[in-house]
Design a protein around this nucleic acid. Structure first.
Lengths: 124, 124
DNA sequence: TGTGCAACATACTTTTTGGTAGGTTATGGG
DNA sequence: CCCATAACCTACCAAAAAGTATGTTGCACA
């Protein structure tokens, strides 16, 4: 589990993998597809993914250069993690938004259980 | 998916949730069960989990204080994420260790595809 | 001679995260 | 009267991650 987390942790890695799930792409394509990500982050994180055996890099020795990235077999199996995360995440968001209101921001709400087992709600 | 990741990211959160998957536990129990984690980290991360609606806190107003933590329903559903991460992770480790050797550390290995489509392997 | 291109690298700064060391509370026991 | 207890909090510091800005390559085109 730690191994799985270490592979996918990184602000842009899941976005990058998501792009490659739909097939081989080149550097500039991925770059355009993920707004907000700088080129440095793309090359850094995609290199880590390569070192971890998730993506393969195909360099075409042309000028100007062309590099295409694709997922390895084990990289493609990450789609199960995608699916689980998405399923839980969307469920999570509907739960925290039940009743049409957001539950999360109630930071200072404690459930006090008195010694006579009476439950008291206290909001600081 | 981003929501799911933001909830579980944090060095100790999965360990804490893992503890609570086996039932309600008090602060000191969790603390003892996770070696290497400081008390500050426990209270900080468990508070974030509480704010995110993953755990509930039950304060018993006794002296010395007693606080018990348990997973909310949506928190318990995180077990599916645990399962997927573990499954992929163990598969990943057997794949990178095929042939009894580690594939990952070959950092500077590029696959060059020449313009005549001949594949050349270059190790810098 | 100069500009643009794609895919980077490198140095530097900022932000986020984690860790260390101390203090706080009220009470019961020595 | 002092200490130990459980569950914290606060200030401070270090490390890791992310972001910004700029430089590099070699060739084609103007």
């Amino acid at each position: 589990m730690a191994a799985a987390l270490s592979v996918i942790s990184g602000k842009w890695k899941l976005s990058i993998i998501n792009q490659l799930l739909s097939g081989q792409k080149r550097y500039s394509e991925i770059n355009r597809a993920i707004p907000g990500m700088t080129e440095k982050m793309l090359s850094q994180q995609i290199r880590e993914l390569e070192e971890d055996g998730i993506v393969t890099r195909h360099i075409f020795p042309e000028v100007p250069p062309r590099v295409e990235y694709s997922l390895t077999p084990i990289g493609q199996e990450l789609s199960s993690i995608f699916y689980t995360l998405e399923t839980w995440g969307s469920h999570y968001m509907t739960v925290t938004n039940a009743n049409g209101e957001i539950i999360k921001p109630d930071y200072t709400c404690y459930t006090l259980i008195k010694q006579d087992d009476e439950v008291v709600k206290e909001t600081a």
